[in-house]
């Protein structure tokens, strides 16, 4: 008996806390991760702001002011990163680029996740023919270099924002679907799933109430880290000339800087690199912390 009461006493401060609440508490104790989290929030707000023409942001980013070319960096806050070949405000362009990058990551994530969940869950839970089919589709996609599919799709379908996001999703879902498939496959035989079935629960209830919530951390972590790969890939697409047209993106800025560097004009390069680097570092650190905090295997609360 003493052992049983002890288990409760030890946790009495945490009583009634769900595993999710415990995970969040764990995450909040990680200072580094919280700093990164707030940086990511700032980026998100910036991205939303960049959708409006606040402070004449969009005008400064897009309109040519040739008499104003190549202003040097760090002169004033408004022209923190100077101006480019056409006299556009590089800071404003980097802010607009934030918008493109974040929305590309968000959109492709939102396309990719339902695909991955449905295919992974169906394959892992029902097995047999459906599983064979899913595994087949995945092995075909894996057999072609991802970047090649993305490039071909964008080249053929056009360089629009949605198509680029779609292309990223088409290659990106496979990894997540595999993880989900494996998790479902195992979860089918978990005793708490069997218990629910003994009570009479149907497939829908078992999938959505018992299995998915217990593997959802895979989805969340992948969603966060998807931004990293999307942003890096966008730079690549920009280099091969297949990123969004007419809108400044970090990739487009870096590519433009290629011809400016020789003449010693570092504005585009500096701004895009700093914006991107800080964002990616924060994503990577936060993503890792999230993975550790959400992992149900880590039982230690302290």
């Amino acid at each position: 008996m003493s052992k049983e009461t002890k288990a409760l006493d030890r946790n009495s401060i945490l009583e009634g806390k769900s595993p999710l609440a415990l995970s969040i508490a764990r995450l909040r104790r990680n200072k580094m991760a919280m700093v990164c989290f707030w940086i990511l929030v700032i980026y998100s707000l910036t991205a939303i702001l960049a959708g409006t023409n606040i402070f004449g942001l969009q005008d400064q980013a897009l309109v040519f002011e040739l008499q104003n070319r190549y202003q040097s960096m760090f002169g004033s806050l408004q022209y923190l990163f100077g101006t480019d070949t056409f006299g556009r405000n590089v800071l404003a362009r980097a802010i607009m680029g934030t918008r493109i990058s974040l929305f590309l990551g968000l959109t492709s994530g939102l396309i990719m996740i339902p695909i991955a969940i449905v295919i992974g869950a169906v394959a892992g839970y029902y097995g047999h023919f459906l599983d064979d089919l899913a595994v087949y589709i995945m092995s075909v996609i894996v057999a072609i270099p991802g970047m090649l599919i993305i490039m071909s799709l964008v080249q053929v379908m056009g360089r629009s924002f949605l198509i680029i996001a779609f292309a990223f999703a088409i290659t990106g879902w496979v990894g997540l679907a595999r993880v989900i498939r494996g998790a479902f496959f195992q979860a089918r035989e978990f005793e708490y799933v069997l218990a629910a079935r003994t009570l009479g629960a149907n497939d829908f209830r078992i999938i959505f109430k018992h299995i998915l919530p217990n593997i959802f951390h895979f989805v969340i972590v992948r969603f966060v880290l998807n931004f990293v790969s999307v942003i890096k890939s966008e730079v690549f697409l920009a280099y091969v000339g297949l990123s969004v047209i007419g809108i400044p993106s970090w990739g487009n800025m870096i590519v433009e800087s290629k011809s400016e560097l020789m003449a010693g004009n570092w504005q585009n390069m500096t701004a895009a690199t700093i914006f991107m680097f800080v964002f990616l570092v924060s994503l990577n650190i936060f993503g890792d912390a999230l993975r550790d905090a959400l992992d149900p295997k880590l039982k230690n609360v302290s």
Binding site: V228, I254, K258, L261, F277, V281, N284, I285
Partner: peptide, 13 residues
């Protein structure tokens, strides 16, 4: 982590 966060294109340039 820093290395994972840098774009190859930037590094090349």
């Amino acid at each position: 982590v820093l290395g994972m966060s840098i774009s190859m294109l930037v590094l090349i340039l």
